[in-house]
Write a protein that binds this DNA or RNA. Structure first.
Length: 681
RNA sequence: GGUGAGGUAGCUCAGUUGGUUAGAGCAUCGGAUUCAUAACCCGAAGGUCAGGAGUUCAAAUCUCCUUCUCACUACCA
């Protein structure tokens, strides 16, 4: 860990403004970064915490279209929802900005111009689909058509949601513009590429300096660099009308690629926050830059953005990128489109003033090294058995006793016993233990150390039993309660990064201003004679009914999903009998079947078509085992032009029924007596 | 299939450069206690460290193979 840094700049991934924030986002990057920053602030270090909404890109324009509003309306809506939710949840950004801001447009534009003037980009002319009615180029998502692989008629230009294939728009059969419904034409367009292939050595050198990064992060970067052909040039501009306009000649109707402009958003936000001093944080080698992100963003933050910054030349590069894995929910992947999520803004309503319970749960179960699962049962247990039973209880019993015995005045300590000294000594080690874990981004460990401090308090009370001693040795009890109060105060300090609302309540009960980290090593923060306020419960038990309500809510959206995903593909355009009769479809029988090596989905089949015996490659391995389908009757299109797949010539296509789950089934005669070669018409 | 990350007690996770009976929290069971939100405190039980083979005096840790999960990627006429 380099120690010669004078200040830290922390960025948290810019959330995309096409939906609200859910617990996966929080656990992945916003909560860890907030804990880190709060801790550093408490230590009195110079640190900035930057975030904002990512408001450009195609999905937002699609959402706008769907809802019949402008893209600006969409981002305004979600920028507000997200910003408000973060604030209420206690994510303490120094600024929560947005990439549609003027400053950002200017900054991103200037940044591009610098790279352009330096000749960093390569220009390339490619053919893209163009909608002549809407008079614009179509992003892949704007094109629908028939999937060339599974024949799903409503596949998108980038992927088919039915069979999961990644497509390129030009592969689609009968492409249609989703803007106007018209048939798009291919038209030449110029775009600017970042030649990552040429920059690879520099990026390699950069990564080599950071072998200390988390293994998931470093490993994934390495896999990008080492993979087959290494890094590939990537287009940094798009033919679109929503985004930052490309600031060069001949770039009418083009905007910056959303992943080019988004990370520059960190810079723009810093500029907005401190217009006169922002450069100190971005250009001075004594600044430590840290990006908190989820694992889906690794390539952008560890390869593309650093490459952009290097080529620009003025900027520092990230010293660390502590990316978390993903959080699942009740065993299933969190999904915005399937509404399988716990939305932060809804949580804040359903569990009013319980920010810290979620903060605690998410941190203790954060997906630091592998994907993790959030369950409501776990949430309840963590609240009831840890926050209430250990932390809340210790504070409560200490304060109750203080009021009972001393009317809320802190008693003076007398002579310390050996045990007292041992406790005080241990007490002083906690801030360092917690700090050490936080410095290494081990948030779960740090949090559990914090709880251990509360455990220490409970044990101290149980061991010394002041409620018994009060009858025989009042002087001794004063010392004990004084120490218990010191522990409580130190808890208030070290819990602040994790559960700031609780920390605030604690300080107010203790009738103290919020003390900083260095005070946590002291054992005399609570001065004798100081008057504390009336105690109140820090945490309330969460009853089964509340948890059940949340589970029911999820179940409901699951049911709704099932109902809506059984979607029937829309009818295709009318065709002629002539066209149909051109297809020669026969009944055939599978004679042999084997897996095509090095593939997951392909089977190589020998089919007796009645006419001949031929080889067909078919993508059915997920649904049928080779040995189980020998002798199976199938329908086969025999006059389809042959095509090579994985080096094997496929001479026909097996017709399959396909349901909305993407599952496939053979189609064959239901009566016997239909020999191979029987025509299907 | 390739690449990367994982697979350790019922659950969530630690296990440093291989070194004595594999650790913690929660859950479970037993005990003690009553200041405290039936909370706390003490104790017990719980693991062929995914499976197999190998290297070694010694392997959760190193090597190889198999298998499962996640991500990126390839294949789906």
């Amino acid at each position: 860990m380099p120690t010669n840094y004078k200040r830290t700049l922390v960025t948290s991934a810019l959330p995309y403004a096409n939906g609200p924030v859910h617990i996966g986002h929080l656990a992945g990057c916003y909560l860890p970064s907030d804990i880190y920053v709060r801790y550093k602030r408490s230590k009195g270090e110079d640190i900035l915490f930057i975030c904002g909404s990512d408001e450009h890109g195609v999905p937002i324009t699609i959402k706008a279209k769907k809802e019949g509003v402008t893209p600006q309306d969409v981002v305004n809506k979600y920028h507000k929802i997200m910003g408000d939710a973060f604030k209420e949840f206690g994510i303490s950004f120094d600024i929560y900005s947005r990439t549609s801001s003027k400053t950002h447009h200017q900054t991103a534009s200037d940044f591009f111009k610098v790279l352009y003037d330096k000749g960093v980009f390569t220009e390339e002319i490619t053919e893209q689909y163009y909608d002549e009615e809407a008079k614009q180029f179509l992003a892949d998502r704007y094109i629908s058509g028939t999937c060339p692989k599974c024949a799903n008629p409503s596949a998108y230009g980038d992927q088919c949601e039915k069979c999961g294939s990644t497509l390129s728009a030009t592969e689609l059969i009968e492409p249609k513009s989703t803007l106007s419904g018209s048939k798009p034409i291919l038209k030449k367009t110029k775009n600017w590429f970042l030649p990552l292939d040429k920059l690879q050595p520099k990026i390699q050198a950069y990564l080599d300096e950071h072998k200390d990064w988390k293994s998931n992060v470093f490993g994934q970067c390495k896999s990008w660099l080492d993979s087959g052909d290494g890094l590939q040039p990537r287009a940094m501009t798009r033919d679109l009308d929503w985004g930052v306009p490309v600031p060069v000649k001949d770039a009418e109707g083009k905007v910056l690629y959303v992943w080019f402009d988004a990370p520059i958003g960190y810079i723009s936000a810093t500029k907005e926050l401190i217009p006169n001093d922002w450069e100190k944080y971005w250009k001075d080698k004594e600044t430590r830059l840290i990006h908190f992100i989820g694992k889906d963003n690794i390539v952008f933050h560890c390869i593309i953005f650093p490459a952009m910054l290097m080529e620009h030349g003025d900027f520092i590069l990230a010293d660390n990128v502590p990316a978390n894995e993903f959080l699942n929910l009740e065993g299933d992947k969190i999904s915005t489109s399937r509404n399988w999520a716990v939305w932060l803004h809804e949580y804040l309503i359903d569990f009013k003033d319980k920010q810290d319970v979620l903060r605690y749960t998410l941190c203790s179960n954060a997906p630091e090294t592998k994907d993790n699962d959030f369950t409501w049962a776990d949430f309840q247990t963590k609240n009831n058995s840890e926050l209430v039973a250990i932390l809340g209880n210790f504070v409560n019993r200490t304060l109750v006793l203080t009021h009972k015995y001393y009317n809320g005045l802190v008693p003076a300590s007398d002579t310390y016993t050996k045990d007292d000294l041992l406790i005080l000594e241990q007490l002083a080690t906690f801030p360092d233990k917690i700090a050490a874990a936080l410095e290494q981004f081990k948030f779960r460990e740090a949090l559990s150390e914090m709880m251990n401090l509360a455990r220490l308090g409970n044990k101290y009370l149980a061991d010394t039993e002041p409620w018994k001693l009060i009858k025989t040795d009042e002087q001794r009890v004063k010392t004990i309660m004084n120490i218990a109060l010191q522990i409580t105060c130190n808890l208030a300090i070290v819990c602040e990064p994790f559960i700031p609302f609780t920390s605030g309540k604690l300080f107010s009960m203790l009738n103290l201003p919020a003390l900083k980290w260095h005070a946590a090593k002291q054992t005399n923060n609570m001065a004798a004679g100081h008057k504390i306020n009336k105690e109140e419960l820090l945490f309330a038990k969460i009853e089964d009914a509340e948890i059940q309500a949340q589970i029911d809510k999820l179940e409901a959206s699951k049911k709704l999903n099932l109902a809506t995903t059984v979607s029937i593909a829309p009818a295709k355009a009318e065709t002629s009998f002539d066209d149909f009769s051109k297809m020669d479809i026969r009944t055939g029988t599978i004679l042999e079947a084997e897996r095509v090596p090095k593939t997951d989905k392909l089977l190589k089949l020998k089919i007796d078509t009645g006419i001949d015996v031929r080889t067909v490659v078919s993508g059915i391995a997920e649904w049928y085992k080779p040995e189980a389908i020998i002798g199976q009757q199938v329908s086969i299109l025999v006059n389809l032009a042959p095509r090579k797949i994985k080096g094997i010539e496929s001479q026909g296509m097996i017709l399959m029924a396909s349901n909305s789950a993407g599952e496939l089934s053979f189609i064959s005669p239901t009566k016997t007596g239909f020999n191979n070669g029987s025509e299907i018409k």
